[in-house]
């Protein structure tokens, strides 16, 4: 479970102080599929970065799976990212010099799995996204949709509790976007909690919950599929 209470994030330069998140409160339960929408500069990427432990927050309380994230040092956050969180990025962020097999291998090596276990997980997850036959291909030899599938396989390979997706369909045409979305829905149905930032209202509607971020706060909450899940406003 992800719980954020009164999270503030202030970016400070010499002259300017920017409040990216203001008393941001949210609870995401296990199995949720939450889409996060909002205008540019609203704070949704900052939220995603903090939720994914990519960035620290200025103050507030953030519990991830019951652990107080604020008490973790950099290594602790790295470990938690590796063990509990999977990332899907708008521009896929595959490593261009590595083939698909090696790309999926990267987080598994940081996890310290042995070669046999890594091989099993890589093959299983590339199979899961339908790219097992292309594991020796380089990312540049794939279409955008296929690259995003590889990124999903990489994110899933470590069996994360949370999948954080930053505009996962932003660089895809509508057909590919639908395919990726269907895959995310399937993954969610298998029990992985997903938080997805998107501009696309139609895709956002396909999530179980949609929240809108405006001026660094959760401004609106729509529960689509679950009456038990709610945001702490």
């Amino acid at each position: 479970m992800l719980v954020m209470k009164n999270i503030n994030k202030i970016f400070q330069t010499a002259d300017i102080q920017t409040h990216a998140l203001r008393d941001f409160c949210l609870q995401v339960n296990e199995g949720d599929f939450v889409s996060v929408t909002g205008p540019s500069g609203s704070g949704k990427t900052t939220f995603l970065n903090i939720a994914g432990l990519l960035e620290t927050y200025t103050n507030g309380e953030f519990l991830l799976d019951g652990e107080d994230v604020g008490k973790l040092n950099d290594n602790g956050r790295s470990r938690m990212r590796n063990q509990k969180i999977g990332f899907i990025f708008q521009s896929f962020n595959l490593i261009p010099d590595l083939n698909l097999y090696d790309n999926v291998d990267v987080p598994l090596r940081y996890r310290g799995f042995n070669a046999k276990e890594r091989k099993r997980r890589i093959e299983e997850n590339l199979e899961r996204v339908g790219l097992a036959s292309r594991m020796k291909h380089l990312p540049s030899q794939l279409s955008g949709g296929q690259q995003q599938r590889v990124a999903i396989a990489r994110a899933l390979a470590t069996d994360p509790r949370f999948l954080l997706a930053d505009e996962p369909t932003g660089n895809l045409d509508s057909e590919m976007a639908k395919g990726v979305m269907s895959l995310l829905e399937e993954i969610n149905q298998q029990g992985t909690t997903i938080i997805m930032v998107t501009h696309d209202a139609e895709l956002a509607q396909r999530a179980k919950r949609t929240i809108q971020v405006k001026d660094g706060r959760v401004s609106e909450l729509e529960i689509v599929a679950s009456n038990t899940d709610k945001a702490i406003a």
């Binding site: 990332f87 962020n93 987080p107």
Partner: peptide
């Protein structure tokens, strides 16, 4: 730079 950021996001520590 982005690749390194991605590795960090995937769980690499500074030491790694």
């Amino acid at each position: 730079t982005k690749q390194i950021g991605t590795r960090r996001a995937l769980g690499a520590t500074k030491g790694q």
